[in-house]
Design a protein around this nucleic acid. Structure first.
Length: 307
DNA sequence: ATGCAGGGACGAT
DNA sequence: ATCGTCCCTGCA
């Protein structure tokens, strides 16, 4: 049994995480830089992230991880949730290590974790992610926050919270386009409206099965198989979800081409996507999403991407 | 300079 | 089931 992680509260807005086997390897920087979250920025001695209407600050003090939250409401619970500190990662890593390659990745990047995003923010973020790249996504989301979010001053710095679906759903498509969204503006508005009008019930999606939640997401304009899987994995606790983007497709084509049955190309058709994603789930197991994150991070590392 | 790729999805064939 | 198109930016 691993020991339970305790978040110790110091002052009113800080905790220090005590040393533990689980936390020694945990690296918020690696996780933040693994392409799953977009609205984090690094300053001289801290990281700041936008999580819905909250600002998360992360820094290190004497080798200890320190988190702060603005506002400080339910800090411990939220920090725990965002970094999935209650996941039994040792068991998970063991379970996804089906072959020498994954085993190598897990030992190479022991600090990498999945993060749990706010569902609304995650949906909007990945709707913006279609056919573009990470720097562009960051730019779009930052523009949305600046235009539609609330200005917050924390730590003497100015931030903008992530706008609610209610606000985005009432924005005009042309105003959304002005945030650099391009043709995605229509999809952002549609997704926001789907949330506020009850088409997407986030609590239900969290509770229900992967298949059911995915079929609900796919009904929304702008959400296809890949983006649905990202939303499911990063915000709806469906850890078996295995999103396949161009990078994962490359990794699979070179290392796991047998998963596709016959020859696998780097471009997947709709039917191939479903088939390969399911095969990956079968192979890596119920935590396939964690395996995906290691593959993705590895591919981006090798490509020398910095973001 | 034109082309192309970058966390895809939609709509018409 | 394929295929052209969609907005935008950086880079060769």
């Amino acid at each position: 049994m691993r020991e339970k992680v305790q978040l110790v509260r110091i002052l009113d807005v800080k905790w220090i995480l005590p040393q533990s086997p689980v936390l020694e390897s945990f690296s918020p920087e690696v996780s933040i830089n693994s392409g799953q979250v977009f609205l984090w920025e690094k300053t001289a001695n801290a990281w700041y992230g936008i999580h819905a209407d909250k600002i998360i600050k992360f820094s290190r003090s004497n080798g200890t991880l320190v988190f702060e939250l603005f506002p400080e409401y339910r800090q411990e619970e939220i920090v725990r949730s965002i970094f999935r500190l209650d996941d039994d990662v040792e068991a998970i890593f063991a379970e996804i290590s089906k072959d020498a390659f994954v085993r190598k990745l897990v030992s190479s990047y022991p600090g990498l974790r999945l993060m749990r995003q706010d569902p609304e923010q995650c949906i909007i973020s990945f709707v913006c992610a279609s056919n573009t790249n990470v720097p562009m996504i960051k730019r779009m989301l930052a523009a949305l926050s600046k235009r539609y979010g609330q200005k917050v001053v924390a730590d003497g710095r100015e931030f903008h919270t992530f706008p609610s679906a209610f606000v985005l759903g009432r924005a005009s498509e042309s105003d959304l386009r002005a945030c650099g969204l391009g043709y995605r503006a229509k999809a952002v508005k549609a997704a926001a409206c789907a949330i506020t009008e009850g088409m997407l019930e986030l609590d239900y999606l969290k509770r229900t099965s992967y298949d059911e939640a995915k079929s609900e997401l796919l009904k929304v304009y702008g959400i296809g198989p890949k983006i649905a899987d990202c939303i499911l994995l990063f915000s709806l606790d469906k850890l078996s979800a295995f999103p396949i983007d161009v990078w994962i497709a490359r990794a699979l084509a070179t290392r796991y081409s047998w998963l596709a049955g016959k020859k696998m190309s780097e471009k997947l058709t709709g039917h191939q996507y479903a088939q390969v994603s399911k095969a990956a789930h079968m192979y890596f197991g119920r935590y396939a999403g964690y395996a995906q994150q290691f593959l993705y991070y590895h591919m981006r590392q090798n490509a020398g991407k910095k973001w």
